[in-house]
Amino acid sequence: MSVVIFAEIDNQQYKKSSLEAISYGKKVASDMGMSCIAVTFNTISGSDQLGTYGADKVVNIASTSEFTADNMSAAFAKACADLGAKIVVISNTYSGKSLAPRVAVSLNASLATNVISYPDTSNGFTVKRGVFSGKAFAYTNLTKDVKVLALTPNSFELNNSGSAVAVESHSVAMDSSKISIVKTEKASGKIPLTEAEIVVSGGRGMKGPENWHMIEELANLLGAATACSKPVSDMDWRPHSEHVGQTGITIKPNLYIAVGISGAIQHLAGVSSSKTIVAINKDPEAPFFKAADYGIVGDAFDVLPQLIQALKN
């Protein structure tokens, strides 16, 4: 019996969220007396290093077919079955989200997404997951024999105390996909919002898209991703992919800096799991100050240049 982890490659390296999933899988496997196997598609050099994050074995599926949700999930599910998977761990990235449900159906498994805790096996198999877009958590019992867990990125510590392991190839018949990829566009050098450890976010208080260079400069100095509130994306000041909140993306970085965002309940829902929250707003009554760890009551146009200058020094 094993815990099988989907190890996702992006831009010729393993995603940090997949390494988190492997460290998570290793702990679960140790607690339950199982082995921890990382499965990768079209391996890259350095895959043996997945062992340092906890994989007892790395299994590679090689294929010349184009990978999309349908054929990749089918091949991954077959590999899981071959490897005796009882627990399947996938990071809840966009690719993970398209795979996990299909894998759960193929394996006749229970599925939990947005998982933010290790399983409690004292009475069944229970995990904590985020619900109501960050406004609450639910303890969910997975009742089927096989379990598929999709982990929220940035929720678990990396543990790289292991050592390198061998990479074995595993042959799975790969169907051709019914979906054809026509074009892929990636913003180069940008940190994906859901995986960013620091996020700098702007709201209507920034007064217009022409002032975003200050948000971007602060973000660059901090190695942060940029985000925005709903009104800002609704007014097309920023792309919708940056909108965090209840109807946007839910994030949980180590540090969230909100500039000129009042902190409506819908916005707070998407960011309240952030470990440290800083609110900068000229209105001392802004609701964000009740949800923040640190606050500055002041105009963004006075405060941001000071922060940027301090970081440059």
């Binding site: 759960a104 498994a109 229970s110 599925l111 939990a112 229970t126 619900v131 960050g134 406004k135 609450a136 958590f137 639910a138 303890y139 969910t140 019992n141 997975l142 009742t143 089927k144 309240s272 799991s273 929250i277 609110a279 100050f289 009740k290 949800a291 923040a292 760890d293 640190y294 606050g295 500055i296 009551v297 002041g298 105009d299 006075d302 405060v303 000071q306 922060l307 301090a310």
Partner: peptide, 24 residues
């Protein structure tokens, strides 16, 4: 396939520490 056993809401923040805007 799953059973919701219980729920909880996020722990309230301990309170904000304000920093003077002149000394940001």
């Amino acid at each position: 396939a799953t059973v919701y056993a219980s729920y909880e809401t996020p722990a309230p923040k301990r309170g904000v520490k304000l920093i003077d805007a002149e000394n940001a």
